[in-house]
Write a protein that binds this DNA or RNA. Structure first.
Lengths: 110, 110
DNA sequence: GCAGTATTTTATTATATAGAAATTCAGCAA
DNA sequence: TTGCTGAATTTCTATATAATAAAATACTGC
């Protein structure tokens, strides 16, 4: 249980999600990720370190650079599922709002 | 992005996961969940409130009791995915450990 | 040794949790 | 109605955790 919670916690930080999304189109260096996300280098490095510990990303060092890439493929499905769930929820809210609007402004509508 | 992070954060707490798992075999009251998880009533109620806000569970009040149930079906898949990912990771570690043991104790093995 | 990348450390701030106490709410009985 | 009881929720406080930003430290290649 602790492990599962830990796993979700790694994904519960916007900056880390940004990094994951940025890595979805291939391997990148820390500098590239710093530029793409707008974070400080130290923080980006720290978040990448956490993702590495969690086994979500892998690292390859070459010359002055560190290249990060996604290694846990389940990330894609996880994000898809959550996005779908959020979409469903918003659609539901929209439907509820619309029908209440309908009642208020054109009360014939059932 | 914030929304996705928020979604994962809801699932990043062991007590909330316990509650979700407890609800997987059907609707239960707060008292039942308190007993099953061993938490304080106030805390269980608070966590259930968060899950309710997040749209993960639903609530039905009847008499003195509040009955909670899972309403976001994607939870099942999410948990399966994470568990699978954790299992993969552990198997990988085990393999790496075993082969290093092999090298150390019976170094003929390549 | 110097310059460019990356990581680690430190301090501050913000957020979230557990636990205790107080409050609300529904049902029941005097 | 009034008060009481059980169930759930909310509020409050202390503690712990985690994020940011800044500074210091490593590592690599020239």
């Amino acid at each position: 249980m602790e492990r599962v919670a830990e796993r979700f916690k790694v994904l519960s930080e916007p900056m880390r999600l940004k990094l994951i999304y940025a890595l979805m189109d291939g391997e990148k260096t820390v500098s590239e990720l710093v530029e793409e996300t707008g974070g400080l280098q130290a923080n980006v490095s720290k978040h990448l370190g956490m993702l590495l510990d969690a086994g979500v990303v892998g690292r390859r060092k070459q010359g002055l650079n560190a290249y990060y890439r996604i290694v846990d493929e389940s990330i894609y499905e996880l994000c898809d599922l959550v996005c779908g769930s959020i979409r469903d929820r918003l659609e539901e809210e929209l439907r509820a709002f619309s029908s209440s609007q309908g009642r208020a402004t054109a009360k014939g509508q059932q």
